[in-house]
Design a protein around this nucleic acid. Structure first.
Lengths: 254, 254
DNA sequence: CGAATAGTGTCTCTTAGACACTATGTC
DNA sequence: GACATAGTGTCTAAGAGACACTATTCG
């Protein structure tokens, strides 16, 4: 069999098109949602699919950079036309998985390998100038996973893989803080876990664990009066990524 | 800026070579070791690097299949010339990460994207016909991570990523059972954790946790007399992948 | 019998999770 | 004061980890 580097003759190397696709998740109207783009052309014209684009050797210094460029240009600015691109530069973004195989893309003669990235964004105020014609839009992941909304290519599976990764990483990393504004209350953070996992969590136990676990939350000293009750303390994430076992699962009852 | 699917004109798509590379780990002589291949040609001729090869649309039905083909043909059969290829078909094999970027490969005009896979194999008896000229060889990961053995391309980083993944997955999956023969004793399994993590584990606590955790070990009823002392029970992994918190970490002492 | 390893039992301390009350703001 | 939400305290049971002894084989 051919080794990867057996000859310098470029003609012997099969050639692939490499694309980046972004699974961007947020919480919107109390459900987990994924940012999808409506396809404007064949194949799968008119269907929803993951936003993305080509990896370009002339533009991109790395896969991560290519993903960041797609995230900003193709996704974030279309969801939030008035937001600053700098904001998107601080979103959580990690490589998810690479997909390839005959039949993924129906275009003849085209071998497309797709490097999927997982992005996670806080719920930002308003997607201006929405309307049905919006090119990029939030769609509840439940609709995608239950196949109520069919996606182009194999994008449903990629979304499923992204959601699975996000659910898992909630448990042992500080990923939840990426789904919430830079300063947030304990209740807002708890709602993230409840929505992503789909389970109710005890308010008091969560508060104890979230605030006592060191290397996780840092009080800002300020409070908020967003809600109707007693003002809540504002916290920020203090930078450490690993937060072992913040999980809150019910005991078994015989 | 270009979307991935904006035109059907294949000429507009930059072309990449896609390779698979395998980080195969095992335990050998009581240390974690990685299977490396000696490069026979430019670039990095004579250096050690990850075994791998081209993804070929005419041969491979998926990335996973391509990785399995490389694992068997380029790696396993060269490490164990007398082993049956069927054995390799049951090794643990999972996609690790994709690497690309200018400067990864010095060959001009070549854009190589590499999909790295992590494989994990039990320690098999003998690598026949070894000798220094062996094309593929086990090298302790410690030597690679400490840069005592420099690898071709960015393969040192890929090995580091693979080892990190393996260490993490020991904690919450049954990955350890892939580093041990199909039937194994509790002590053999414990040694896997101790070697991969580099920490001593309490024999008694480990035994209790490993055997009581359901969905993990299944007694075969048979015993072994491999060692010098009392014969040990043989277990096999019962198929469940998720094993939450088998970790055994020392308490903090003030 | 001694050496070597396998396997079991007990105690303690940490902590997850169940649960109820007080505190502080708005209307 | 009514209401809503924030935040704290206590109890219990599960389990992790420290630790010592018995069991079974070989020489």
């Amino acid at each position: 069999m051919d080794g990867p580097h057996e000859t310098h003759d470029a003609e012997r190397y099969p050639r692939f098109t490499v694309t980046i696709e972004i699974v961007i998740l947020t919480i919107r109207d109390d459900v987990l949602a994924v940012g999808l783009a409506r396809r404007g052309e064949w194949p799968y014209e008119g269907m929803w699919g993951l936003p993305g684009g080509l990896v370009r050797a002339d533009l991109d210094a790395s896969l991560d950079r290519a993903a960041q460029r797609e995230l900003i240009e193709e996704t974030f600015l279309k969801l939030y036309p008035h937001a600053s691109p700098g904001y998107a530069r601080h979103l959580h973004l990690e490589q998810l998985k690479t997909y390839w195989g005959p039949g993924r893309d129906p275009r003849p003669g085209l071998q497309v390998a797709t490097v999927a990235y997982l992005a996670v964004a806080p719920h930002l105020p308003a997607l201006v100038a929405a309307g049905d014609a919006a090119a990029v839009r939030w769609i509840p992941v439940e609709d995608v996973l239950d196949e109520r909304v069919a996606l182009a290519f194999d994008h449903s599976r990629i979304v499923a893989d992204g959601v699975e990764r996000a659910r898992a990483k909630l448990e042992y990393t500080a990923l939840a803080t990426a789904l919430v504004p830079p300063e947030f209350t304990v209740a807002e953070l708890r709602r993230v876990y409840e929505i992503v996992w789909g389970v109710p969590l005890d308010k008091r136990n969560f508060h104890r664990k979230a605030t006592h676990r060191d290397g996780f939350l840092e009080p800002t000293g300020r409070t908020t009066t967003r809600g109707r009750g007693r003002p809540a303390q504002l916290y920020r994430h203090n930078g450490h990524e690993a937060v072992h076992h913040l999980s809150v699962h019910p005991h078994h009852r015989p």
